[in-house]
Simulated scan of single mutants.
Amino acid sequence: MLYAVFMSRPLPSFPESQEPFEAHQLLEFGPAPDEPGLRADAARNRARLLEAAARLIAEHGVAGVTMEAVAAAAEVGKGTVFRRFGDRTGLLMALLDHSAKQLQADFLGGPPPLGPGAPPLERLRAFGVAVLYRSAEQLDLHLAAQPEATRRYSHPATGSLRTHVTMLLRQIVPGADCDLLSHTLLASLDPALIHHLTRQCGMPMERLETGWLDLVARVTRTERAG
């Protein structure tokens, strides 16, 4: 299942007229910031390594992903993996980036209510549900790849989600501090929190989904009333 999630379709291009705010703000992360303009052969090698890593996760879980195991699965030297991703955390973050691009493609150009064509409040609800279940499916990977706080909040994938939520909030509650509100809403979708609630507290995913929808309703209703 994880293999299908990670190695799904590539991120498509969308007309700027479709989602002008998001198109300018979100379609910025492809290769990692330290990998500008990969050559075609290097891009193919990178995709091959990510495919091997995703296959290892599907077969053995995140614990089965080591630089040595990925090199062996991709039939390359271990040094190639280190040169491409730096370390194991860099490799795991690259896998999460691939999944984040799929989610971004879905909310920029997929069918409503997650994608364009539905009212912004419906899209915000659908966005949280999509992130919630995707994070739950990839909890072990998220926790293994969790960078320190400064990198975590400045990471392009995190920024793309925050930009999308901010854009929707500006349409729902104009005049509110939507930048700050987006941080508040996304905090409830943090993978570490989902791990704690589902695996340590035994909460069912349906309860978390209901909680997200209730939080969105309360935030937007309160701001409208104010």
Results as ranks from 00 to 15, higher is better:
I194H: 03
V216E: 01
H183C: 07
H196P: 10
D190P: 08
H196A: 09
M205C: 08
P174T: 11
L213A: 04
M203E: 13
C178S: 12
H195I: 05
L197K: 11
I194F: 05
T210R: 15
Q171R: 12
L208E: 00
L215F: 02
M205E: 15
A187H: 10
M167H: 14
P191R: 08
T163Y: 11
M203S: 06
H195L: 06
L186I: 10
R162E: 08
M167T: 14
R199M: 06
H183L: 14
T163G: 00
D214N: 11
T166W: 02
P204V: 11
D190W: 03
Q200L: 14
L213S: 08
D190S: 12
H196I: 02
H196F: 13
Q200N: 11
M167L: 05
T210H: 13
Q171V: 00
H164F: 09
R199D: 07
C178H: 08
G211W: 03
A192I: 00
L208H: 04
R170A: 04
L215T: 15
V216P: 04
C201H: 15
G202R: 06
L168D: 01
L181E: 01
M203C: 13
S182P: 03
L189A: 11
H164R: 15
R207D: 12
D179C: 02
M205P: 04
L161T: 05
P191H: 02
L169C: 03
D179A: 14
D214F: 08
A192S: 13
